[in-house]
Design a protein around this nucleic acid. Structure first.
Lengths: 212, 212
DNA sequence: AATTCCAGAGAACAGTTGTTAACTGCATGG
DNA sequence: CCATGCAGTTAACAACTGTTCTCTGGAATT
């Protein structure tokens, strides 16, 4: 299915990616709703009108960014939450995965956190859709766990949502630690990991006693 | 301390409030970072330059909005989370309070959810400060509860943060239900309340077994 | 080899933005 | 009652915005 595309299409995708990258960079200090199309093209070094060859509007670009930021994350989620290893170990593994991801893609994480409740409706909906998929996947993994015996589908989904939201909050806290002054960074990161671990542990406890 | 202020000061506060109200309205479909000062003054019906008599910038106005949206909420939090009534009853009371607040002040709730991770740093910090106060207050109320005996200060605070974040998520979900099509509104609201109640219940369960 | 296609450039448009300066009229304090 | 203070006005500025139309050079197709 990977038919090596011609010089023409390759160049197009290259500028498209350059637009996405530039936008993501500019969004570090503003929201999508204030991002101008000219601003983006200027940062890339192409004419303003070139923008229309790739996106209908900045909102459209935002939706593409959601896909880039969350689309490739699904397999990672499944393997991480999957039923291997002791319960406590699964928690530390998850927290570490989040920390590593925030470290590797801080701009993507910030974008999602910022635009999840942001001022651009289509983008909000795109994020909501992706997060719903995450919750669904987490739910399916939870169902595999023997601890979930006797749980209703509804309760599994409500727990999955709790986990997903918790992971997002943790990611955003890691990001804040990362953005702070360098001399506090390490300590704050450790602190976030410590608190998040305990919160996950507490939720896990509630889970084990749910059917009492 | 309520020294009836003169005609002059009264009129000033009136336009200031008009600016805040207009801004809040305009922020229903955009983020603060794209809110223009002229846009706000136009909505109020005053000259653009009048804006400067009240705020240095739209960011400054945003900080004032944070104060308006969260400042008056502290006493409400304390009494709601306080140690009166059975545990289950406390949960339904809290959820209902949130639902009622979102119903009464949807624009304020949206503003906080949107700008908590938004593109304007001073506003983000103002919100973070207020939420930290909330967590501190919830922690103090939790400490009163006999269930919290033997808990470390750190653990009380991590639980308080969990509760505060959970309340915010719930508020934002109520808001989404409110914004949806009218015929789904009632059903979706009930659904949100149902899920949020169970999540709170599960966290409460984890809390009771924390020291096992 | 000739033709079509199309990503990007260039110029121009009407409308918007934040900020400045100098002003006006009215409530206030002496 | 008169002088001061100050909320809000008016006018003007350079800079910026999204969008349209026309054009061009080179890859893609025939």
């Amino acid at each position: 299915m990977s038919h090596t595309l011609g010089i023409r299409q390759a160049q197009k995708q290259k500028t498209r990616q350059a637009l996405l990258d530039a936008a993501l960079g500019l969004l570090e200090e503003q929201s999508l709703s204030s991002l101008g199309l000219r601003e983006v093209t200027r940062a890339v070094g192409v004419a303003p009108t070139a923008f229309y060859r790739h996106f209908r509007s900045t909102a459209d670009l935002g939706v593409a960014l959601v896909e880039e930021a969350l689309g490739s994350l699904h397999p990672m989620i499944r393997t991480t939450v999957s039923t291997t290893g002791d319960h406590e170990e699964r928690i530390t593994r998850t927290i570490e995965l989040i920390a590593r991801h925030v470290d590797g893609y801080p701009a993507h994480v910030r974008f999602i956190a910022r635009e999840r409740h942001g001022g651009v409706q289509p983008v909000r909906e795109a994020i909501r859709g992706q997060l719903a998929r995450f919750a669904q996947e987490v739910k399916e993994e939870l169902a595999e766990d023997p601890v979930s015996e006797g749980w209703s589908e509804d309760d599994l989904l409500m727990l999955a949502h709790l986990y997903v939201d918790q992971m997002l909050i943790t990611a955003s806290l890691f990001l804040e630690a990362l953005e702070g002054p360098e001399e506090e960074r390490e300590e704050r990161t450790r602190q976030v990991a410590r608190v998040a671990t305990r919160q996950m542990r507490l939720i896990g406890l509630g889970r084990h006693h749910w059917l009492d």
